[in-house]
């Protein structure tokens, strides 16, 4: 492998280790690629970083200047030196984790970080001991940027900032797809699958199941089925069938096809 960098790649060093990555790669992603762990709560490989939680701060030296940057959004640059474990970095990381622990004391991921960075005792009185949400915004970005439905968003600002549905009331558009829960780092989003419906408890929204057009079994929230039909009209028929029937259907057609082949 050539050591030379091209226009589309850059070479940087992270804690003394050199690495060449594609231009546009963030420092966080570059570090993780060589096994250097930088904690990050508002980053997800699918969504990228938001620069919001601030636990991923690292020190960089660029153009002779040393400064703290947010690694989840800081682009890797040619000749960049990155330090992920300096005293300054650790102090700031501990400080942010202590603040998050006061905000969301029940969030497991925050508790674990606090333990790892040696700040298990809450430094500040939490306002709600049950709280889990750290306002990383991953649910908001998932719903708006990935699913493009926008059932939830940020509301209010500063201390009052919250994620939720408008008026914190039942949503008319939530698909109950559960993608937000998948990407939430703190386990704040609660979903309960009941007999007739999927309850998006955190979003105060119940969406009934769609029944399979073949076997009548519940398999996907009805709104999600409608959404998928619109998104992918060619597969409209496919999504009205439950996965089991779909598998059986596929198997059947295979069998038929092979019978036909044998006949020939």
């Amino acid at each position: 492998m050539s050591e030379e960098t091209t226009n589309s790649t850059v070479k940087l060093s992270i804690d003394g280790q050199e690495i060449t990555v594609e231009a546009g790669t963030t420092v966080l992603e570059a570090a993780r690629r060589i096994g250097i762990d930088i904690p990050a709560l508002c980053y997800h490989p699918v969504l990228g970083g938001a620069g919001a939680c601030r636990v991923c701060l690292v020190e960089v030296v660029a153009w002779g200047r040393r400064r703290m940057v947010t690694s989840c959004v800081y682009p890797a640059r040619e000749g960049l030196e990155v330090y992920t474990n300096t005293e300054k970095v650790l102090r700031s990381r501990r400080a942010v984790i202590a603040m998050l622990l006061a905000k969301a004391p029940a969030a497991k991921v925050v508790q674990e970080l606090a333990k790892k960075y040696g700040s298990t005792e809450p430094a500040y009185e939490p306002s709600d001991p049950e709280a889990r949400c750290i306002l990383c915004g991953q649910c908001v970005r998932t719903c708006n940027e990935l699913i493009k439905v926008g059932a939830v968003n940020f509301a209010h600002r500063g201390q009052e900032r919250k994620v939720g549905t408008p008026y914190n009331a039942t949503s008319d558009v939530c698909l109950a797809c559960g993608a937000c829960q998948n990407l939430c780092p703190t386990g704040n989003i609660r979903i309960r699958d009941k007999r007739d419906l999927r309850a998006m408890l955190t979003w105060h929204t119940d969406v009934p199941w769609n029944k399979c057009s073949k076997c009548g079994q519940s398999y996907l929230p009805a709104r999600l089925v409608e959404f998928l039909k619109q998104q992918c009209p060619v597969a409209a028929e496919l999504v009205t069938i439950c996965p089991r029937c779909r598998r059986e259907g596929t198997a059947e057609s295979f069998v038929q096809a092979s019978v036909l082949a044998d006949d020939e």
Binding site: G150, A151, F154, A155, P166, S171, V173
Partner: peptide, 25 residues
């Protein structure tokens, strides 16, 4: 009002959550 916000969101073709987010920010 909520009704007004709903109408605006519909006309502007944005989710209500976005209009509500602005109105509270």
């Amino acid at each position: 009002s909520r009704e007004v916000l709903e109408v605006v969101a519909e006309q502007m073709q944005v989710p209500l959550s976005q209009a509500y987010g602005l109105a509270t920010f």
